[in-house]
Structure formats: structure tokens, C-alpha cells
Design a protein around this nucleic acid. Structure first.
Lengths: 146, 146
DNA sequence: GGTGAAACTCCGTGTGT
DNA sequence: ACACACGGAGTTTCACC
């Protein structure tokens, strides 16, 4: 039964708009049973939501970079995520082990915008930054083997 | 008119399963006009697809890491993406500027699995690896400001 | 958890402007 | 590019197992 949930999640990860009718055909369950399972998966938070995958080039954000940050004053309390939250160009913020404390993934339109963003990051969180610019992305957001 | 496309994409990025009827209400257009626009956005590849957002903890992949790789033999042809393609634990592969040639984002269940994966990466692509383990993720996959 | 059916809503296409 | 309309398809809830 857990097997069927995995199957449903795999199908929805591939096509987030697949109809309940088609999910039912694929799984061999009735439409209402599938409906019930999807609602339960959402309620449990295993399925957190559904989203459209957009082409960054075409929506005007062709530049991606990873920004590692390190506090200038290591004794100060670390609330970098809170301080950086309003910088919407930061697509992801990961706390990491290693020499730096966070890795940020950012999307911008131009090198100039990246420069502006780095200044804002340094000012907002009182950190030093180390930036790695993405040249191309062979793949991204690939579905994990559930 | 371009404004309405941006609005539609924002709505679909927030809720990938929103009905055309609701999109029509939000945008003030008719259902068929919205339908036409979404199909066009997909045909142009601006909307690349729709996907379910899954909780990595709950699907058994609680561990995330960034793996930077550098070729051991810099004179060899660089076909790392092709050689790494079958390692499905690699969620993303970015070619980057800087000291290393690629940054990989990987998801695994345990430290042991990470160790196995790193061995496979080194063997498959003939590279040295530098791994940064993610401790927590304040946010991820946030919608860019379209 | 599962089914099946009923009532409702939505989708997708055709037609017209 | 958009609006309107209509038949087919999908969704959602219900009683029952």
C-alpha cells in the first residue's frame, strides 16, 4: 500500500497536473481511492505542493551563482537566514558544515545585478562572500529515486 | 499582455494545479483565453512542466550535500555530465567558473550512502571531490521575482 | 482503505468577432 | 487575441463494504 503512494508521488513528480482519473488508471485503484491518498499525502506534508517549472533564461534571469558566506564576527549571533529572507533573488539558503556557514543559490539577470546582490548580502548579514558563477546546467531539479 | 503572462506564471508557480477557471478569475480573462496562453507558454518552453514538491525527509532522503569535482587529468576530454548521468542521487549538475569544474547537488539516505556515491562519482568521472554537507535548509526552491 | 455512482465543475474545442 | 457556448471529461462527496 505504501508502494502505491510511492507510485502516485512519482507520477505527480513527473506531471504535477496529471488527472486523478489517469492516476487511477496507472495505479489500478478507483478514482476516489487515489483522490483520498493524494489528499492524505498533502495533509501529511509528504506532498508539499505543486509548482510550474519555469525557464530561467526566458523569464529574464539567465545568471545563476552559488554564494558561500562566512560571518565577519564569529561571536555575533547567527541570524543570517532571517536577515537575508527579503532578498528574493536568493532562491535557496542552506546551512552547511565546512569552512563557510551557508551556501546560497541566487538567480539574477546580469553581472551588475549580481554585484548589487552581493553588496546587499554582505551588508545585511555582516558576512564575507565567496561566489561561484554557473556557466551552464546540464541538469537540475531531477527527480530523486523515491 | 506580457503582464498577464507573468501573472499566470506567478500563479502557476505558487499552485501548479490551479484550474483554468480560477486563473481566468484572477486575471480577468475568459477561460479559453487563459487556456490559450498557458498552452502557448508551454509550447515556447517558458513553462517547462509541472511537478509535485515532495518532502525529502519523509521520502527517505534526509541528507543533502554539495559535491564539487575537479578532473584528475586536466588534459582528458571533459564529459563528466555524461558519465554521471546515471547516478540518480545527483539531483543537479552545474558547470561552474572557479577552481572546480562542476558542482553537484546530491540527496542520499545516510552517510554510508554518501560515501558510496562519492566513490562512484570519482570512479565514473575520474575526478577529485570536495563535499559540503547540508545541515539544514532555511528555504529552497523559492519562486524568483518574475 | 476500498468501491461505485451521482452532482457538480472544469476542460477543450469550435465558432464568431 | 479574445469571448461565448456546448459536449465530453474530470472532480468531489456520499453511502456502503
Amino acid at each position: 500500500m505504501e508502494e502505491i503512494d510511492r507510485q502516485i508521488m512519482t507520477l505527480l513528480a513527473d506531471d504535477g497536473r496529471m488527472s486523478f482519473t489517469d492516476l487511477a488508471k496507472e495505479t489500478g485503484l478507483s478514482v476516489s481511492a487515489v483522490h483520498q491518498r493524494v489528499r492524505r499525502l498533502q495533509k501529511r506534508g509528504i506532498v508539499k505542493g505543486f509548482t510550474a517549472q519555469l525557464d530561467h533564461e526566458q523569464i529574464g534571469l539567465p545568471m545563476t551563482a552559488f554564494v558561500s558566506i562566512k560571518p565577519i564576527d564569529p561571536s555575533a549571533p547567527d541570524d543570517a537566514p532571517h536577515r537575508l529572507r527579503d532578498l528574493t533573488a536568493i532562491e535557496a539558503c542552506h546551512s552547511v558544515a565546512g569552512e563557510e556557514s551557508y551556501i546560497l543559490k541566487v538567480r539574477v539577470a546580469t553581472p551588475n545585478e549580481l554585484e548589487d546582490l552581493l553588496q546587499k548580502i554582505r551588508a545585511a548579514a555582516n558576512v564575507a562572500t565567496r561566489t561561484t558563477v554557473v556557466l551552464s546546467t546540464p541538469w537540475e531539479g531531477r527527480r530523486p529515486p523515491i
